[in-house]
């Protein structure tokens, strides 16, 4: 057999294998993607919460996308405490002014950024939240101060529809 013929044969087999592999990969994708959030989950609407009954120093917990959301009406001391912290003391530096646009209201996902437990209210060394699972301490702005959690508790997208109603999402 000549050199030329060998090459042609190799090319044919390579091409066949390559085209076959592309097809196999294309078939695998739908089987994987079907486990991603489906259209109805993605469309899940925002939640509106009536906060008129919430007094300063108290927290309301509501469910949004299957996770608890803490809505805290903070006292002046809590706000002062949160705003007086120096950035270099923080594990995950974020200004309280950025986390709570309206200082009286702190809205955040009540999920510990370590492994997803729900932290306890008014507990811990920093007067904020304390996660009982692995001992993460959060301050009055929901920022991580001590313990294994890497980040501050997440602030979701939200807005005040009117003075008494918060729309989360």
């Amino acid at each position: 057999m000549s050199e030329k013929k060998t090459k042609r044969r190799d090319f044919l087999f390579t091409a066949t294998t390559a085209v076959g592999a592309v097809g196999a990969a294309a078939v695998v994708w739908p089987m994987i993607d079907q486990m991603n959030p489906d259209a109805s989950v993605k469309a899940l609407a925002s939640t509106e919460v009536d906060v008129s009954a919430l007094t300063p120093g108290n927290t309301l917990t509501v469910l949004w996308r299957g996770k608890p959301v803490f809505i805290r009406r903070r006292t002046q001391e809590e706000i002062d405490e949160a705003r007086s912290v120096k950035m270099e003391d923080l594990i995950h530096p974020e200004k309280d002014e950025d986390r709570a646009k309206n200082p009286e209201w702190l809205v955040m996902l009540g999920v510990c950024t370590h492994l997803g437990c729900v932290p306890l209210n008014d507990k811990g060394d920093y007067n904020g939240w304390f996660c009982p699972c692995h001992g993460s301490h959060y301050d009055t702005s929901g920022r991580i101060r001590k313990g294994p959690a890497p980040w501050n508790m997440e602030v979701p997208k939200y807005e005040f529809v009117n003075a008494n109603t918060i729309k989360i999402g």
């Binding site: 044919l12 087999f13 091409a15 066949t16």
Partner: peptide, 15 residues
């Protein structure tokens, strides 16, 4: 796609 692959496989098979 299937037709293209079938043709390729056909010639590979012949070979």
């Amino acid at each position: 796609y299937l037709i293209i692959l079938t043709i390729l496989v056909y010639f590979s098979m012949k070979k």
